[in-house]
Design a protein around this nucleic acid. Structure first.
Length: 360
DNA sequence: GGATCGGAACGTTTTGCTCC
DNA sequence: GGAGCAAAACGTTCCGATCC
């Protein structure tokens, strides 16, 4: 807590208990901040016989009077329950909570319940005979300055990016909807949007407006990373079928969507599928597989041409599409590394993906 | 042991309602 | 119409469990 003015070291008296260095530092910083804001001098003391369990005591000197406090030190106070817990531990009237930063709301709560506090940003609530201090709303500058380090796109990041790329209406949707569509937790969706913004893929205009930047570059990065990062987590299973043409049979009653080569065939009529990839909702996985196995006499085979994966996104309302979104077909085909597929890959990208973000 | 993620808790903003 | 309030919706932060 040094804002340009040379700060004197706060006073320390007596042999301090085995206080953790970080806690001692916290108390000293809070004492210095209080002196900066109010000119009230503070003195850190060892706990006395009256308060052997306390972390420390401090004396505040103001107007030729001394105010003694029993200190409870909490590096982080971010919720009311913690304040209530401290209140129960400390003696009424002389108990003092010292923390790194107390938000305006929690500061007001402390005042409401009568819990005196000091923080290292200069916020304080102190009340005694001839003493009244209430400061709240001082910002934690260290916290505000913390930079964010961009990381690579992980599985959750790929999930979120996928729904933004394939369902562009979600870009300005509430976080809750994005999280639900991507199948990730709300906190993860928030972190992943932050991640996309940090990597230059997303511009947060305000609370309700976002814009996808460089979708082409994001599509490329997504397609490159999907086979290695997200795909292995989709519980892949392989099968073979006695009839190589089994996939031509209509299975509309089973909740799955075609990916990779079969999807490419349906979209372009260009590629003759040698392998079949199916995406099934996790909730329907077992029943759908049972039906497929029975109907087409599939049998498990680690080297089989049929691959079954969990569908990782939630589809929009309406009839179930027969194929997965073009972006996923594109990524699956790229991963196959089969020269037969290269022309189809190009057609799918040009015809089904690139135009999606042409207009603003 | 560190990284990641889900979910709870909390803070803030928006929306809807009532009353004047 | 708009001020005031409450509830709902949403965004943000952080803890603890789990995974690697």
């Amino acid at each position: 807590m040094n804002k340009g003015n040379e700060m004197r070291e706060p006073r320390v008296r007596g042999i301090l208990p085995p206080l953790l260095p970080a806690r001692e530092q916290l108390i000293l910083e809070a004492m210095a901040a209080l002196r900066d804001k109010t000119a009230i001098e503070a003195e850190l003391l060892a706990p006395g016989a009256d308060s052997p369990q306390a972390e420390a005591r401090i004396d505040l000197h103001y107007d030729n009077k001394k105010f003694r406090y029993i200190v409870e030190c909490k590096p982080l106070v971010d919720r009311r329950q913690l304040i209530d817990q401290v209140r129960r531990q400390l003696p009424e009237g002389s108990g003092l909570l010292i923390t790194s930063y107390l938000s305006r709301e929690l500061a007001h709560y402390c005042r409401e319940v009568g819990q005196q506090y000091m923080d290292t940003c200069g916020n304080a609530y102190l009340r005694g005979k001839g003493l009244f201090v209430f400061i709240s709303g001082e910002k934690d500058e260290n916290r505000l300055r913390q930079p964010r380090t961009p990381r690579g796109l992980n599985a959750s990041g790929l999930r979120v990016a996928f729904v933004l790329l394939t369902q562009p209406r979600l870009i300005n949707a509430p976080l809750k909807d994005i999280a639900q569509a991507a199948g990730v937790a709300l906190g993860s969706a928030y972190n992943m949007l932050d991640e996309l913004a940090a990597r230059g893929y997303l511009l947060k205009i305000d609370r309700h407006q976002r814009r996808l930047l460089e979708p082409g570059r994001l599509i490329d990065e997504w397609a490159i990373n999907y086979p290695f990062v997200l795909r292995p987590k989709l519980a892949p299973r392989r099968f073979t079928a006695p009839d190589a043409q089994w996939w031509k049979t209509s299975d509309e009653d089973i909740p799955f969507a075609w990916g990779a080569e079969v999807a490419a065939n349906m979209m372009t009529s260009y590629l003759k599928p040698a392998t079949q990839t199916l995406y099934i909702e996790p909730g329907h996985m077992e029943s759908a597989l049972r039906t497929l196995v029975k109907r087409h006499r599939l049998r498990p085979d680690p080297a089989g041409q049929i691959e079954v994966l969990e569908q990782f996104w939630r589809i929009e309302e309406g009839p179930r599409p027969a194929t997965v979104p073009p972006l996923l077909v594109y990524a699956d085909l790229l991963a196959i590394l089969d020269p037969r597929a290269s022309e189809t890959v190009r057609i799918i990208k040009e015809k089904f993906i690139d135009h999606t973000f042409d207009s603003p």
